[in-house]
Design a protein around this nucleic acid. Structure first.
Length: 257
DNA sequence: AACTGATTCAACCGCACCTGT
DNA sequence: AACAGGTGCGGTTGAATCAGT
């Protein structure tokens, strides 16, 4: 699923990276760092441009990069952050330890965008129930919505996301009203979900607030890898807190997953 | 088995921003 | 202030893979 390697007119290699190139780049950066991406390929003996080296390092070779297997918690967080920040993938990536902006962007476009559309489709159902339609949609959305409407009731993720999102907004009354048959989480779960949401808020803000300078100047992505791997708060605490939050989930929430 | 359209995701490209001179 | 070089970001591409017929 990668572009076939080829050489451009300047003799620079493009396309998929080979294992050998990965090893050369990894070894060079571990030995000499990456103070200047433009000069790096020549110094390392790679026929690549600096941008290509940087991208490869940041997205795949860098230590602690997590690939694939997104958890529900990560999906929820990405959805929430995208709702707040829009397509600010790098900003979103700073809130997900180990994830890169490129991967999050891909994941959004291939998985989460459709789910979000499904969610908003149900908002439309709700809207129509009181005789109003609040949102105009473009053609692409309409296609996605049509797909979504076929299976909306059988999509467990939808139920989670709906409840999560609603807990973020201030509409528990509408949420708990009986006219929306798709919502399955009981009203008494909302307080717990709000606690959950607060826990998520704390998880993603506290370590960075404590080490606020990391956000601006020493975020893991820009740290030397040995420094990052020894940084105790940003990554490991986050994972621990996710575990803790999962323990606190209401039983019916877990069943709906 | 062969074909075709859809999906996925690594990588590229252009542009904006930042920093140094 | 103006310019140049380097870096990072977000949109897009394209080929491998998957799923359906």
């Amino acid at each position: 699923m990668v572009k076939t390697p080829f050489y451009d007119k300047n003799g620079l290699k493009k396309g998929a990276w080979s294992e050998e190139e990965d090893n050369i780049l990894r070894a060079y950066i571990q030995k000499s760092g990456h103070s200047n991406w433009r000069k790096l390929p020549k110094s390392a003996g790679l026929s690549r441009c600096g941008k290509s080296c940087r991208l490869r390092w940041m997205n795949y070779l860098r230590p602690n990069v997590k690939l694939g297997n997104y958890t529900e918690e990560e999906d929820l967080l990405i959805t929430k952050l995208h709702d707040e920040l829009g397509n600010k993938w790098s900003m979103i990536a700073t809130r997900l330890p180990g994830r890169t902006d490129n991967e999050i962007k891909n994941h959004w476009h291939t998985h989460l965008k459709k789910r979000t559309l499904k969610m908003s489709t149900t908002s439309k159902v709700k809207d129509q129930s009181d005789g109003k339609i609040y949102h105009r949609r473009d053609e692409a959305d309409q296609v996605a919505i049509k797909e979504a409407e076929n299976d909306i009731c059988s999509e467990p993720y939808y139920q989670i996301l709906e409840s999560f999102t609603l807990s973020l907004e201030t509409c528990p009354i509408e949420f708990s009203s009986s006219h929306n048959k798709h919502v399955s989480v009981a009203e008494d779960s909302l307080a717990t979900l709000e606690t959950l949401e607060q826990s998520f808020e704390n998880f993603w803000t506290e370590p960075f607030l404590m080490e606020d300078t990391h956000i601006q100047t020493k975020h893991p992505a820009s740290m030397p890898e040995e420094e990052f791997s020894q940084s105790p708060t940003c990554f490991n605490d986050g994972i621990d807190l996710i575990d803790q939050v999962m323990q606190e989930l209401p039983e019916n929430y877990c069943r709906s997953v």
